[in-house]
Write a protein that binds this DNA or RNA. Structure first.
Lengths: 235, 235
DNA sequence: CCTCTGCCAACTGTTGACAGTTGGCAGCTC
DNA sequence: GAGCTGCCAACTGTCAACAGTTGGCAGAGG
């Protein structure tokens, strides 16, 4: 990769923006592993750009919670302890349970049909594959939040989703809960259709709980070795 | 201000970090007004630094939702339309209602005493002043979220709080709801003490609703004139 | 008087070089 | 051999200059 960060089809008109996307992908794909340090000189060279735009991209990814920046030491792919992962799932509950409640009131039939279609597609896709890292656009949870029509809520949910996704890359083996998840998704959709708020929120809460337990159970020891500091960049 | 961003007591060891804090304060204090453009050359000079660290600070504040960056045009203090403010309050509901629910289960008596003390202090402070922009550390809502002990949740709540705070600077006159708010806070605390989850969440939901109506009622027309583009920096 | 075209100043995006900090290693001391 | 001290290489933080883009203005044309 000596070419300036190409290969991207996006219309980001700026190196800094394209680099942000590329780095985010590298982090979530596991190309950059949690705890790993980003050497600015090396990385900039391999991306074919200078350190300026690279640093700007790093700043933004740090704000997003995917990187940890330590003054005078550099940027590291963020690591998560057990407790932090639990926190993320709790935050996710806050957002998605609220989304479910709102959808019980607001969702149009078309919205729910949309969700059902997505579920069918996912169902057929995973019939063969183990636990593919399917594109996030196809994710039931995000689609559900999208239907609320609240951009701020969606942005928050997306950020949490990404952090959880990163945390999951810390464990080598992936829990293959995909099929069970689909079933639970279907149940939730069912409750949504019935406009049964109590049941829908309960099912969603349980589902997220299961998802968390599955994720945490395969997580390495909470004792992180090679780590600089915790928390986000600033205090 | 030709001195390098001093006056800050924080231990931010870097121009970039200090600048982020200073800019955030300028934005929330109203020193930089919504829609206003940040001229990099001018601003950097007045802060006594070069454009590099300034741009990094800008990137982070954009990720935080306080600035809007438009390629090749610059950074603008973010503006909000009515609908966006409503979205923010809805997101705030998601976070704080969840916090209330958790506190009904988890909060220790000491925690609630802490909250009561805060409330007393606030009560005595506003007895004279109209609607002072009291420091956010004294804010009932943030303290409430803090007590949950979930850093991720707190970070999210803080970010929403800041955006709402910025949105409120768009209207010249401030709604002086302080006294009513304190009463409502006291009611919520009362419900928390009784561990009455249903009542506590209902009171909090109503309270946020009132707060939103108050904020939106004094907001200027949703037709923003002098504005570059909507949404955060990236798509 | 209005509209379109082309130029220009202002500003952002990017770069390469310079300065200060950090962590580790060699060598000295005990 | 263990521990301390001082130096050094690697790397981050910052700067100033260069390059490309944008929006507006002047002037021609209708």
């Amino acid at each position: 990769m000596t070419q300036p960060v190409s290969k991207q089809l996006t219309r980001d008109s700026t190196y800094s923006q394209r680099t942000e996307s590329v780095l985010r992908e590298m982090i979530l794909d596991g190309g950059l592993k949690p705890g790993e340090r980003l050497n600015e000189v090396t990385l900039a060279a391999s991306l074919g750009i200078s350190r300026g735009p690279l640093r700007e991209a790093i700043q933004r990814l740090a704000s997003e919670g995917l990187l940890t920046v330590v003054s005078h030491r550099g940027a590291f792919v963020r690591t998560f302890e057990r407790a932090e992962v639990a926190e993320l799932y709790e935050l996710r509950s806050a957002l998605e349970l609220h989304a479910v409640r709102l959808l019980c009131q607001r969702a149009s039939d078309d919205d729910l049909a949309d969700l059902a279609a997505l579920l069918d597609e996912t169902e057929s896709r995973i019939s063969g594959i183990a636990d593919p890292a399917y594109p996030q656009e196809l994710d039931f949870h995000l689609r559900l939040v999208m239907l609320v029509g609240n951009q701020a809520l969606l942005t928050a949910a997306l950020e949490v989703q990404r952090q959880i996704s990163l945390a999951r890359t810390m464990s080598a083996q992936r829990p293959t809960r995909a099929r069970k998840a689909v079933v639970e998704h279907a149940d939730i959709l069912d409750a949504l259709r019935a406009r049964d708020q109590e049941r829908a929120t309960r099912l969603m809460a349980d589902h997220i709980q299961h998802s968390m337990e599955s994720a945490i159970s395969v997580l390495g020891l909470p004792i992180d070795d090679e780590e600089p500091d915790k928390g986000r960049t600033k205090g």
